[in-house]
């Protein structure tokens, strides 16, 4: 049994021995049972992952919940989306959007330049996400925060899904995210549509899009 939604902004996470939950520090709202919380210094990626986090700034202090009980998580009144990973593909998300995840999920920091070369780096810079992103692999639940909730848009062979860079939240599966610009002379004279730069998602998987263009 994974995370469950209490309402659109609070989730309940069951904790038992052998099933710890990692969450953003300060996100715990309440808990029942015998649960202890301790800070996590080394990310689950080990020394390498830790060093990566230090360098990349893709670091948000996390805490681990251990014991037996149920923990309720929420963060700043933001909407929470629960994403179940079935091992078919990784979840890619910004570290500051990650509210909680099963400790069984492997977390790594990925340099965007590795995915799409220089274009990947440009994408990170343009969309304001930085040059690094967090990936979670394996089986388990993850909870992601957003402004106004998310919708899940399937990405498949039918064609690419284009997403506003500010509204992009996360993606699951084997999805390539590339930046595409359709800047015209209209943008230069202030007559643009406001949609000049988009993220083009191709492959197979799901893209999560929030109902706002605000960052966390």
């Amino acid at each position: 049994m994974g995370f469950s939604a209490v309402n659109s902004k609070v989730i309940a996470a069951p904790v038992e021995p052998g099933r710890e939950v990692l969450a953003r520090r300060g996100a715990m709202l309440a808990y029942t049972g015998a649960v202890t919380f301790s800070p996590v210094h080394l990310g689950s990626g080990g020394i390498g992952g830790f060093a990566g986090r230090m360098v990349s700034g893709e670091q948000v202090p996390m805490m681990v919940a251990q014991g037996q009980g149920t923990v309720y998580y929420g963060y700043r009144g933001l909407y929470v989306t629960i994403i179940e990973l079935d091992g078919s593909g990784p979840l890619s998300v910004e570290a500051d959007r990650l509210l909680a995840h099963d400790a069984a999920l492997q977390s790594t920091v990925v340099f965007l330049g590795q995915q799409g070369g220089i274009r990947g780096a440009v994408r990170g810079a343009v969309s304001g996400q930085g040059l690094f992103t967090t990936q979670l692999h394996g089986y388990g639940s993850a909870a992601v925060v957003s402004h106004g909730g998310t919708i899940a848009v399937p990405v498949g062979p039918a064609g690419p899904v284009s997403v506003d860079p500010q509204a992009y939240v996360a993606h699951v599966g084997h999805v390539d995210v590339d930046i595409s610009a359709s800047v015209s002379w209209r943008d230069a004279v202030g007559r643009g549509s406001g949609e000049a730069i988009q993220l083009k998602c191709t492959g197979t998987g799901t893209v999560y899009v929030q109902a706002s263009e605000q960052k966390i």
Binding site: S162, D164, A167
Partner: peptide
């Protein structure tokens, strides 16, 4: 203006 968050097609 600017209210598009995603599109297909």
């Amino acid at each position: 203006t600017g209210s598009m968050v995603a599109y297909t097609g």
